[in-house]
């Protein structure tokens, strides 16, 4: 710092006194720090990849923080794109965030990112809103900014819609299947509890639980065939 002040004193006019040199120093420092912070936030989505790692590990606090931080920007984007109500935008926001989150958890969205997570989220929002209001928009081609066009997102949204429909059908079949199969399959595939933990919780050997799960899946497949869900 002393060297910096010395250089400034040499180049500045005589009436610029040390306290002013210090002021210049602080302003320059502020500029450098700001520039660094801005550059850091824009470089290769590094910050978002850190966030991605957190979300992939299932960190709920990160999810809640991101959810709260982006809601306002998301809603304003949807409102300005579709000229809809703020409330309509807010209605689809949790759905969009859940799609983004689950795709991260399932490793379908992994580094290196080609867009920021915010852009992915906005793009999901655009597709969801468009699908929900097809009667209004199917004949009208919307003009979107190029940076909002993110590959995979259309597939992500279609996939999510399909899975939700399957969830509705699966619930009915699980209901028909009844306990204890319903409970076991939900613990394994919905709550994703490992057999080691289940074995400890229920005091049943792992092998027995695996056999039970297999038997339950067999029964469920019979129900799927009977219901002709897959067109077989």
């Amino acid at each position: 710092m002393a060297r910096f002040i010395g250089i400034l004193q040499e180049i500045m006019p005589a009436h610029i006194y040390p306290r002013r040199v210090l002021l210049i120093y602080h302003i320059s420092l502020l500029c450098v720090v700001t520039q660094h912070a801005l550059a850091g936030s824009m470089s290769d989505y590094q910050k978002d990849e850190g966030l991605l790692a957190s979300l992939k590990s299932g960190d709920q606090k990160t999810l809640e923080k991101m959810y709260s931080a982006l809601q306002d920007d998301f809603c304003r984007f949807i409102v300005s794109t579709f000229k809809c109500d703020y409330q309509q935008a807010r209605d689809i926001y949790p759905e969009c965030m859940s799609i983004l989150y689950l795709n991260i958890r399932r490793n379908r969205l992994a580094p290196p990112l080609r867009s920021s997570l915010k852009t992915y989220l906005f793009s999901i929002g655009r597709h969801i809103y468009h699908r929900r209001n097809l009667d209004k928009y199917n004949t009208h081609k919307m003009a979107y900014p190029a940076e909002m066009e993110v590959s995979q997102v259309s597939d992500m949204v279609d996939d999510a819609m399909l899975k939700k429909e399957r969830a509705r059908q699966l619930r009915e079949l699980l209901h028909k299947l009844g306990d204890p199969c319903k409970s076991l399959l939900e613990k394994v595939y919905f709550e994703e509890i490992s057999f080691v933990v289940l074995s400890e919780q229920q005091g049943t050997p792992e092998a027995t639980l695996r056999k039970r799960k297999f038997d339950c899946l067999k029964k469920l497949r019979k129900l799927i065939s009977t219901a002709k869900i897959l067109g077989s």
């Binding site: 699966l170 619930r171 939900e186 595939y189 919905f190």
Partner: peptide, 9 residues
């Protein structure tokens, strides 16, 4: 199909 259903849930 079953796995999709659980993911949907």
């Amino acid at each position: 199909w079953t796995m999709d259903g659980f993911e949907g849930m």
